[in-house]
Write a protein that binds this DNA or RNA. Structure first.
Lengths: 195, 195
DNA sequence: GTCTATATGGGGATAGAC
DNA sequence: GTCTATCCCCATATAGAC
């Protein structure tokens, strides 16, 4: 990796952490430069403005978090459907547990998105990707005859998406809740199972 | 209302709106003073610092949003339980629809709370209030024999709290989802009903 | 690519008159 | 209670050498 790429990556990485710790608006070039170990004006060689840096961090944040990165429709079969769904949710909860910065920074961008079309378009696309992903998943489950009830698949799919999403929000400042159990209950509530 | 109280209330109200539109960090005394129609230093008569103003807006934000303000346990009976639960959710969704500022400002404070003990304590208490409120509600439903399944009442209660909470988040930037239907599905998924 | 030096603007906050 | 005038600081950003 060239020196240029190294510094670029370091700028993104450091900014990401500082955005989580102090918020985007209160993170300054002075703080970033100090942490990266370069002079403040050097940042302008990589990003024309603070806004450009904010976009750069967002680009990085969005990498590899689309629905398909976690859910592979093919892997779900009649025999493993419920278990797979629960396992993936548990995995996502673990990852958020390990990187508490992620949710915070994402929240920062969600708020930015309420005032900025570019961000709102991209976040909306991401959200829609998850909603339609869960819809496809439940359709497959329905075809396999695994659902307790086949009505309103769309609303049910959205419900799952909402729960998984909000677990992240809650985790930001309440560690005492059994999030995996909530996810299990949500999944069980839709699927038939021995009781 | 005295002149003093009038200005105080106006400062809170205007700040609340500006916080939603521009974010707390990017809202300045200059903007607030202009909107309220007083000179910038006059604000210091009411709030010693910007931090004090931020707390003042938060105090106002917290008024009347506790669980009991929406859910009265007494009103839930065997006959109206599911309908009441659905109706209250629908009412909360309508209110958030009418005041899109509320969720945004609350989100701003949630992020502040990740860096500030005072805010995090108070938000945590509010969250716990909702979680235990839903627990009590489901216990009553269970006693009345209305639940499909009596296991893991806590996780089920938390699931409802999560969904209602996150509907607000989603509403911030996606108006095309049938949120009331999602709430209905969530409620139905726990209660027995004719199918 | 990275530096030092510097410009410029606007933020929060205070002094003190009315 | 509200004003005008003013201070200090630090933010983003630029100029230009190396």
């Amino acid at each position: 990796m060239s020196k240029s790429n190294e510094t670029h990556a370091s700028l993104i990485q450091v900014s990401y952490c500082l955005f989580a710790e102090h918020g985007i608006a209160k993170t300054t070039y002075t703080m970033i430069a100090k942490e990266v170990g370069i002079a403040k004006p050097s940042i302008y060689y990589y990003f024309d403005s603070k806004d450009a840096l904010i976009v750069g961090v967002f680009d990085e944040l969005c990498k590899g978090i689309e629905f398909a990165a976690f859910f592979d429709l093919e892997q779900f079969t009649e025999d493993n459907f419920v278990e797979s769904l629960i396992a993936i949710g548990a995995k996502m909860i673990d990852e958020q547990d390990k990187d508490p910065y992620f949710t915070r920074v994402l929240q920062e961008y969600m708020l930015l998105a309420t005032r900025n079309q570019d961000f709102s378009k991209r976040l909306l696309a991401l959200q829609r990707d998850y909603l339609s992903g869960f819809e496809a998943l439940l359709e497959k489950a329905s075809t396999l005859g695994l659902l307790r009830n086949k009505d309103n698949l769309t609303a049910k799919a959205h419900m799952l998406a909402l729960i998984l999403d909000n677990i992240g929000h809650f985790m930001m400042f309440d560690e005492q809740i059994d999030y995996k159990q909530i996810w299990i209950e949500a999944v069980y509530s839709l699927f038939t199972r021995d009781e």
